[in-house]
Amino acid sequence: MFELFSYGPLGWGDEILAGLWVTLRLAVTTLPVGLLIGFAVAGLSLSHNRGLRALGVGYTTLMRGLPEILTLFIVYNGVGLLLNRAMAMLSPEAAPVEFSPFAAGVVALALVFAAFAAEVLRGAFLAVPEGQIMAGRAIGMTPRQIFWRIKLPQLWRFALPGMGNLWLNLLKDTALVSVIALDDLMRATKVAVGVTKQPFTFYLVACLIYWLLCLVSELGLSRLEQRANRGVRRA
């Protein structure tokens, strides 16, 4: 039993750990990209311009309504097709380029993450009490100063619980990239299953690893929340 998961040529421990490494890298790379797009979309949804606002709301509605796996295939196949068409136009005799599954995974997961993050951020911006903004205005702060000194510092505190959930969803959604042949934890498990013919054992181990990742994340998130709320008076 244990030799199945040992290191080296006999066991699958090293392959599974390598897959776990890809999963973690994918999640950690996607997070900042998704946050950045999320901020931009939240900015659109909060804009005073009606057209921009419709754009922001349209984006979040669309991306939250589509299955993640459909988005992934659209990005993976669509961008691949576009790249090849562009390359063929530039230099017809060039070999077809391959859009890396890792990049496709990051782009697709970031697009989905951004739609949900934009909603969390929008809510967090609106959660800043009106009185504080009026106070800022009363002492003569410019809108920009109000943004940087009053709204943004509190955003973290209001957005953290929602962002925590999104991080857990992101960790789990990374499993989808195994479908486009990226060697993440899920795919490493699948390869091991193909050789050992012990699907239940290996998929159970994969599940337990994901579970552990989520439990550790939850622990870290509750620490962060405690820290973020350290200056808040409790009734």
Binding site: L168, K172, D173, T174, A175, L176, S178, V179, M186, T189, K190, P199, F200, Y203, L204, A206, C207, Y210, W211, L213, C214, L215
Partner: peptide, 10 residues
């Protein structure tokens, strides 16, 4: 705490 894809494969 686990991806639904992993549950499906399991």
């Amino acid at each position: 705490g686990t991806p639904i894809l992993a549950q499906l494969f399991l």
